[in-house]
């Protein structure tokens, strides 16, 4: 079994355009950015949140707080996995109370990561609202969760994998669909 690249669905330009559009939608949706804050989910949600923050600051001339969330300890599959996920540090350096929080992640799939992220956020404080921004929505939800801001809807089958690469971690901006193929 090997993972083969089946298609590239977003390139560097498409990713930047999607993020810029999401930034505008966030501003439109929230009316005021005074209480707005972004929280990126490790690993690849974090650099995406960082870019969204720069875009929002640029557009609004504001300074929007940014945090990083590690959801490992909130996963619902911890006691089922043989390969134990590594724990990383959560760094949310602002008070969440009365904030409008936008969770940022790379891919929305089953919704379980988002559920874990919401639980983690609520342990840190009581935001007024929690919204969700994702670069790719690939479908197949297992929980009643939907994104408020979507970069691109990518219909996939469960056997496929959506591989998001970002410059900050992978040296390239690209979204691929990978497929398991029998040798």
């Amino acid at each position: 079994m090997a993972l083969i690249r089946k298609a590239t669905v977003m390139d560097e330009k498409a990713i930047m355009q999607a993020l810029r559009r999401i930034a505008h939608e966030i501003i439109e949706h929230n009316k005021s950015t005074d209480n707005l804050a972004l929280v990126g989910i490790r690993k690849r949600g974090a650099p995406l949140a960082d870019r969204l923050q720069s875009l929002l600051n640029e557009i609004e001339g504001a300074s929007i707080p940014l945090g990083i969330l590690d959801i490992t300890l909130y996963r619902d599959d911890l006691t089922r996995r043989q390969d134990q996920p590594e724990v990383h540090t959560t760094d949310v350096p602002f008070d969440l109370d009365k904030k409008d929080i936008v969770i940022v992640d790379d891919v929305l799939y089953t919704g379980r990561t988002t559920r874990a992220a919401m639980d983690a956020l609520i342990d840190l404080g009581r935001p007024d609202t929690i919204q969700l921004a994702v670069l790719v929505d690939r479908g197949h939800r297992e929980l009643p969760i939907r994104a408020d801001y979507v970069g691109k809807n990518v219909p996939t089958s469960r056997g496929e994998r959506v591989n998001v690469m970002v410059k900050e971690i992978d040296d390239v901006d690209r979204v691929d669909i990978l497929e398991d193929r029998q040798e």
Binding site: L73, Y74, V87, T90, D123
Partner: peptide
Amino acid sequence: ETARSMREIIQRPIKKVPALRG
């Protein structure tokens, strides 16, 4: 390294994560 991530939890107002529930 794992302990460094855990220390952040001790500083929170709600000092609890569900990792070892049950």
